[in-house]
């Protein structure tokens, strides 16, 4: 196995995440796209860690942190989505226009 494959997979995943971020109308789907992007980062870090830094495994430690923080972020995100659903009864991004862009 070569490092490039990991990086390419990560890059592809990242691009899918970006695509989902831009096109999704549902707020939960946007959150999921962000998770995809973070997972792409995790893949990157794991790959680098395995190939370049097998003794220090700093990348793997980093990955654990990223997963943890991603969970926290998702929790806060879902909480906000829940709050907005209670007030507005929708989570469609197009409907959120109280504040004009």
């Amino acid at each position: 196995m070569q490092l490039q494959y990991f990086l390419l997979l990560a890059a592809a995943l990242f691009c899918i995440g970006i695509y989902g971020l831009i096109t999704s109308r549902n707020a939960v789907r946007v959150l999921m796209s962000i998770e995809l992007m973070l997972n792409a980062v995790n893949l990157n870090l794991m790959g680098f860690s395995n190939f370049l830094d097998p003794t220090g495994i700093k990348g793997q430690v980093f990955t654990v942190f990223v997963i943890t923080v991603a969970a926290a972020e998702a929790a806060v995100g879902l909480a906000i989505v829940l709050a907005i659903y209670r007030n507005r009864e929708t989570i469609d991004m197009e409907q959120f226009n109280l504040l004009k862009w």
Partner: peptide, 23 residues
């Protein structure tokens, strides 16, 4: 709510992008 959601989504995606650069 709306401000928070916008801030969160844009902030989280920008930190994901930042993180990709960091990786």
């Amino acid at each position: 709510n709306e401000a928070a959601l916008k801030y969160l989504l844009i902030g989280a995606s920008s930190s994901a992008i930042f993180l990709y650069g960091v990786s």
